[in-house]
Design a protein around this nucleic acid. Structure first.
Lengths: 248, 248
DNA sequence: CGGGAGGTTGAAATCACTCAATTAGAGTGG
DNA sequence: CCACTCTAATTGAGTGATTTCAACCTCCCG
């Protein structure tokens, strides 16, 4: 569909291509980054709160979340991450992790040494700016989630998350025709949305009964994007700061 | 108290000094940045959602907040900003504002052209990394607020905000002895905490009745830091990523 | 001293939570 | 192929936190 844009199978290049235009030299340099690949089962922490990592994580395959355990035992999930994301890029300039990173399904991740990333953006400063931009988009997504947690009720929030996941999956080619596989349990959705599992369940049922989505197994089918976006309080993907070509 | 560290009256240098160690050359370069100073009355937007600024804002005096108006009329405040903060630093690499910036009391701000900031960090790449770090701390604070909105009740959240404000004000020399002036109205606190004005009022009363703080006029006096921090769910300032010297 | 913004309080309604029990699927071993 | 088992999903009933709506109060400032 994007005829002039050559496909690239490197997930990081594909992902960065959704938020900035990359030159051939930049692609080549990214492709040359040394990676250490490793598999994780669901639930096994990749990084823990208070760790001081010397490397960044690049998700190759699977689904990750960032979270913190709160006094009282509740878990707050801050974000979900898709292949191509570098969920702990902030560790480049923030020594101590203030949250943890874990797969929600069995996942393959690649580690890239901080030293290699620094060398890369010192050689090609524009790559540094693109990485910086990636962390800023991260922050923009936090603002959007804060808005949901602070100002939207469970019904709106849930609709919003379903919209966001579709737009993000579509942008990296993992969803089309308003359908996608949703890998998280209702427990995990609740931890992200700030509601209990029980209430997630009731809320999803409401959305189903309203006829805007159907959710069977782990499969989401959006029947009316317009209605779902309206329920979300007017879903506006601006906060994802995708470059125009990549928008659905 | 920090004998070896020379005082500097430039608010940006003071603020950056709380999150990184600056060399003399870096201080000088920052001091040389061209500033355009302007005063704003409370409530007048400095930047609006959808704007595409070509400059960043540095707060010299007063108090700012970042916010968005949500479908339904509610306002979500994402952060409060103190002198020395650059609340829209993200506009350097995110063209479109996804939220607005406004003073909550009459404030003096300085504008710095994006071009000048870029020139600065191209000449001194470490300054770029410090600015990047500042935006990452911003994101860390969003995560902390998300945690509150998603996982803490109104009582804990309010205590948490009072703790955060003290630590931040203290770090730039605007508070001591566990007391400070709190410039925001209960309406604004509610918009930040995701609760109604009425409930802010009841919650503050609860804190007062518990004997941990007194709030008269715009003055906050924390009687028991330990208790307040405990109510907040164990306030831990790690997420502010202040450098050791600047911590209270 | 009058007006207005911000603060304070009460009562009823609502959203989401807790607790508890039940059902549905997916994998496993016999 | 069928029990068995585990995890995730589902539902009901009662409870609690927060909102809504409405009124009143208090201070500051012109």
């Amino acid at each position: 569909m994007t005829a002039g844009i050559p496909e690239d199978s490197h997930p990081l290049i594909r992902r960065l291509g959704t938020i900035a235009v990359l030159s051939d030299a930049e692609r080549a340099a990214i492709r040359a980054l040394p990676l250490t690949v490793r598999d994780y089962p669901a639930g096994a922490d990749i990084i823990r709160e208070r760790d001081r990592p010397a490397q960044c994580c690049l998700l190759l395959d699977g689904f990750l979340c960032r979270y913190r355990i709160v006094a009282g035992g509740r878990r707050q999930i801050f974000s979900f991450h898709l292949p191509g994301d570098m969920p702990d890029l902030q560790s480049l300039h923030l020594e101590v992790m203030d949250h943890a990173l874990a797969p929600i399904v069995p996942s393959t991740v690649a580690f890239i040494a901080h030293a290699d990333i620094r060398a890369l953006y010192r050689a090609l400063p524009r790559i540094g700016e693109i990485f910086w931009r990636a962390t800023l988009i991260d922050a923009a997504m936090f603002r959007e989630w804060m808005t949901g947690l602070g100002s939207r009720d469970a019904y709106q929030r849930t609709a919003h998350l379903l919209c966001e996941l579709y737009v993000r999956l579509e942008s990296i080619g993992l969803a089309r025709d308003f359908a996608y596989d949703i890998p998280m349990t209702q427990q995990e959705l609740g931890d992200a949305l700030g509601i209990t599992t029980v209430h997630v369940n009731r809320t999803l049922r409401q959305l189903r009964e309203a006829g805007v989505v159907s959710i069977r197994r782990a499969r989401v089918q959006i029947h009316s994007w317009a209605n779902l976006a309206a329920i979300a309080g007017g879903f506006d993907p601006t906060y994802l700061h995708l470059v125009p070509l990549a928008q659905p």
